[in-house]
Amino acid sequence: MSAVTELPPATPTAPGGRSGPAAANKARFSTAWLWSTPPILLLAAAFLYPLYLVVKQAIEGSPPDPANPFKVTTSFSDTLKDPGTRTVVKNTIEMAVYSTAGCLVLGFLLALIIAFVPFPGARAVSRFVDVFLSFPSFLITVSIMFLYGRVGMVNHIASSLTGGKHDTPIDFIEYSPWGIWLAELIYFTPFVMRPLLTAFSQLDSGQLEVAASLGARPGRVIRQVILPEALPALFAGGSLVLMLTMNEYGIVSFTGAKYQTLPVLIENFAKEQTNYAGACALAVINVVLSLALFAGYRVLLARMSGGRRAAVHA
């Protein structure tokens, strides 16, 4: 399986040559395919075929069932036309865009300080960022409830400051998009920071010093030296976060269900309303949206010079 020859024969064997090289090459060619087939088949059976069934069911809809008159029947176009669906799609995109924007700003700022205004413990902080990436997302929702929730710590402090006139001066977390936004901001910012820190570590610090010695103020250095170098990483991290927030289930479902996004609605359709056709239709919409973003992400990642390891988790 391991190809020791680093490249295939670039030019075909000369007319006088024997058939040897060609045959050997063909053998190696088919060996590579032979080795690739089992994992592909495995994933195809476990994942691609089920995914195909989802698309199929979304398109076919569910026919009325004479044995069960209460069964919900839906077709793809029903689901698409439903104003409820439209609101949820709009919510999903909006939340993803706002969260990503917040993550980009905060992630860039924090990464900038870690990388270029170093302080003792900066390495430990960047370690912490790595560990953070492996935590489950709902953990954030659980804990910000204690902090900013209706009866949370911040509310108590605020209400004691206002002299107890309002019970809940800060009422944005439960059942509101702001709680989801804050949780997504916290959870996904490290996903932006990781590729940025990698990109920053590859930046020649001499450039910054030369720029400063030429009289550029920090703002100009950031805009004209750091930002152009960081742009690919920023794009890569941003589009990854855009995709992940669009697909996020844990944070939204833990917050409370008034503000719905596609993944939560899919779960709701399938598990509570047993409306599989509707769930499949929503799933197709969700997959198309996030695949489009993922394709963009892969293109950007491929362009990112040397930053290949800054992929999803690195």
Binding site: V54, N247, P263, A283
Partner: peptide, 24 residues
């Protein structure tokens, strides 16, 4: 082909992965 097939589960929402298994 290999890259697309094996990266796809990252791009597909986890809820949809569950749904697909449920349907299949």
């Amino acid at each position: 082909l290999i890259q697309t097939v094996f990266m796809l589960p990252i791009a597909v929402p986890s809820v949809v992965v569950g749904l697909a298994l449920l349907v299949a």
